[in-house]
């Protein structure tokens, strides 16, 4: 069953009180929601707490919830509402530096800036920047929709007004470029050297004892 339909059925089951559907709702939308939250707050842990709060809140009033066409955007809206409420109540309490604003500058970052910024390995960071520069805007957009927002090819196709096959091909070509650029590992040689020296010393140590 394809994504959007699967999501709708999960939603209906959820509304009718299925605990399994509640868990599936979490699993199906986790990536899209957590990345949305991280872009908003800069903090994964906090974002997850908000997702949990949101889903359990919806569970409490499940019978009264509407039948929604696009479950994903419905949940995103709910998550946003909760995060805004937190900020507002923090402000009321006079809390200036709440975890919700700790890395707020993430909000202004584009997808490519975001995924580059969070790379801690400098070599990968560098390669990634260079490689992303080779991609077209369209390719980057689709990579974000596919891997960061976690839409499936059907949703991407209808959102971008292209066929599913075209969506798939654009993602595929972009991946090909990235993989070629990121594949060549630079530090393997030094690791190799390190292990040889270490082995040598080990052998010496063993000889003595």
């Amino acid at each position: 069953m394809e994504g959007p339909n699967l999501h709708k059925i999960t939603w209906l089951e959820f509304k009718s009180g299925s605990e399994k559907a509640l868990h599936n709702l979490y699993k199906q939308h986790y990536l899209g929601l957590i990345n949305y939250g991280i872009k908003f707050s800069g903090n994964r842990q906090y974002s997850n707490d908000c997702i949990v709060e949101m889903l359990l809140g919806l569970w409490e009033k499940r019978a009264k919830l509407p039948e929604v066409e696009n479950v994903r955007s419905y949940l995103l809206t709910c998550l946003r509402t909760i995060m805004l409420q937190h900020i507002r109540s923090d402000k009321l309490r006079g809390v200036k530096e709440s975890h919700a604003h700790s890395l707020i500058d993430h909000q202004e970052l584009s997808y490519e800036e975001h995924i580059t910024k969070i790379q801690t390995d400098l070599i990968i960071k560098d390669k990634l920047t260079k490689s992303l520069n080779k991609l077209t805007e369209r390719q980057k957009e689709l990579l974000q929709l596919k891997f960061f927002d976690n839409l499936d090819y059907d949703e991407i196709a209808s959102r971008c007004n292209i066929s599913k096959r075209t969506a798939y091909n654009i993602v595929y070509d972009a991946l090909k470029i990235l993989k070629d650029d990121l594949k060549k590992e630079g530090n393997e040689d030094s690791y190799y050297l390190l292990s040889v020296v270490s082995l040598l010393l080990f052998a010496m140590g063993a000889n003595i004892s």
Binding site: L31, N35, N48, D49, L56, Q119, L128, F147, L175, L178
Partner: peptide, 25 residues
């Protein structure tokens, strides 16, 4: 490469977060 593209959300991250969800529920 998948983790690079999805914003560094690993399966370990998912497992830890899902556990928190399960506990809360």
């Amino acid at each position: 490469l998948y983790y690079v593209l999805n914003g560094n959300i690993t399966d370990e991250n998912f497992r830890a977060d899902y556990e928190i969800f399960q506990k809360a529920f």
